[in-house]
Design a protein around this nucleic acid. Structure first.
Lengths: 118, 118
DNA sequence: ATAATATACCTAGTTGTCCTATGTATTTAT
DNA sequence: ATAAATACATAGGACAACTAGGTATATTAT
């Protein structure tokens, strides 16, 4: 039943917004494209579900970190392009440093050093 | 309102069980001790809430990754010591490799290389 | 003495993210 | 003709994390 036991995908929780924000910061992208790009760049590791990505995009837009613009394609298959905002860039920078802090903390714990404060 | 915006503690989500499992694997510990040790080792970064840790411990015990034994102290303040099981050790090893895979994937995405598969 | 803090356990209820499943609609490949 | 890919969307359920409360003893500060 529990599929996620061995995949380790739960680690993704909490990093979704950062990853998406980062990708969009490189160049404006639409949802479906983000899913494909993330999968390609990570060599198959990240396979975002639509039920994960689209709510995340709406979340990011609602908090003003990204904004969007529809591109009307010939036919009915339109695309919604997302662009990072100035606020989003500030937040992304913040998230980068948070990520570094997190890694440092993890390494401190895993470090087989003294557990005594000095 | 949203306090967690700047703390970056959401990154912890998904790594709680691994951290706890790792700590216990070093030596048997009781809940309160785990909270304090994690805080000390991480130099203040990890400050697990009781509402986070105790359910996590019960979760790990229910899935057979750890087991517990009460230590009766003189007075009424007893301690419940947790020990990693064989199954827990296997799972911990798995989680280590998942963590490595996750870091690799993240770095692949953040790498400013070609996004073309080769 | 007494109040506050630290130690030590616990859980019910809320919140929020992620996934499943489903829906709509067009285009391309078989 | 039919399946798969492209492209968007959301309702519902599962589950982890936190808030906030509870119980009880020991220690430290006032």
């Amino acid at each position: 039943m529990r599929l996620n036991m061995t995949t380790g995908r739960d680690l993704v929780k909490g990093s979704t917004d950062s990853l998406v924000l980062y990708l969009i910061s490189e160049k404006p992208m639409y949802g479906y494209q983000i899913i494909k790009e993330l999968e390609k760049k990570s060599q198959g590791y990240f396979k975002f579900k639509e039920g994960t990505l689209y709510p995340a995009l709406h979340r990011l837009e609602n908090t003003g970190l990204i904004d969007s613009q529809w591109e009307i394609l010939p036919g009915g298959r339109n695309r919604r392009y997302y662009r990072i905002t100035t606020k989003g860039q500030r937040t992304l920078a913040e998230k980068r440093s948070q990520w570094r802090d997190f890694l440092v903390a993890i390494n401190l714990v895993l470090q087989p050093g003294t557990s005594d404060a000095r």
